[in-house]
Amino acid sequence: MNENPEKTAHFGYKTVAETEKASMVADVFHSVATKYDVMNDLMSFGIHRLWKRQTIASSGVRKGHYVLDLAGGTGDLTAKFSQLVGDTGQVVLGDINSSMLKVGREKLHNLGLVGNIDYVQMNAEALPFPDNSFDLITIAFGLRNVTDQNKALRSMYRILKPGGRLLVLEFSKPEHELLNKAYDFYSFNLLPKMGELVANDGESYKYLAESIRMHPDQETLKTMMNDAGFEQTTYQNLTGGIVALHRGFKY
């Protein structure tokens, strides 16, 4: 038997070597980057916009704030934050994937949003910032793709200012069994088909569906956040718990 068995992580339903997950996730997002926004609208019937609005409404963000939109991808949240923090604030769009960052940068440039946004490639598990830097960190539909989620949460805690807050927007567990079933059918049968048709990439969307199901439920994530040091951790179910918005503070 192997003396030192390799650590493993979930890649959707597959179990893969921990070292491999990051690059497999990278492949998924390289391959969906350009179609990402269209697919988001299609897959969620546009509802992801409302989920994101709720995130902003709960963020307390205002003029002069320093914000990290982690796993920010194509920058939907960054676009709003950039306007809300104004000239005296700053937003960092952070993502592990250069293709997503590139699409994000182009999109935000075209929206005329320049001046207070930095684009930085980074891994959520080892954030390249000093302690106590940010007023707000958001990670929207990103945490489930991260290999070591506990490590990532600790890293976010470290770089938040005292008084700062973390918002995690992520797929979660629907509150009702029936909704759960309908949602399962949708994500395992219809979603990969849509991915196939629109983005010509059924496999990537199959991974998305599976990773959603493997992601910790509401209470588990809340505990994980508390373990990382966050206080006053609460969550709010959106759309029957298909998505949950967790919020925690650092004091």
Binding site: I56, A57, S58, Q83, L84, G86
Partner: peptide, 19 residues
């Protein structure tokens, strides 16, 4: 509800924030 004009756009949110 909170209303903010950011220089180009109006933002309107339904919120529990008290700032």
């Amino acid at each position: 509800f909170v209303v903010v004009f950011t220089g180009q756009n109006l933002h309107l949110y339904n919120t529990k924030e008290t700032l």
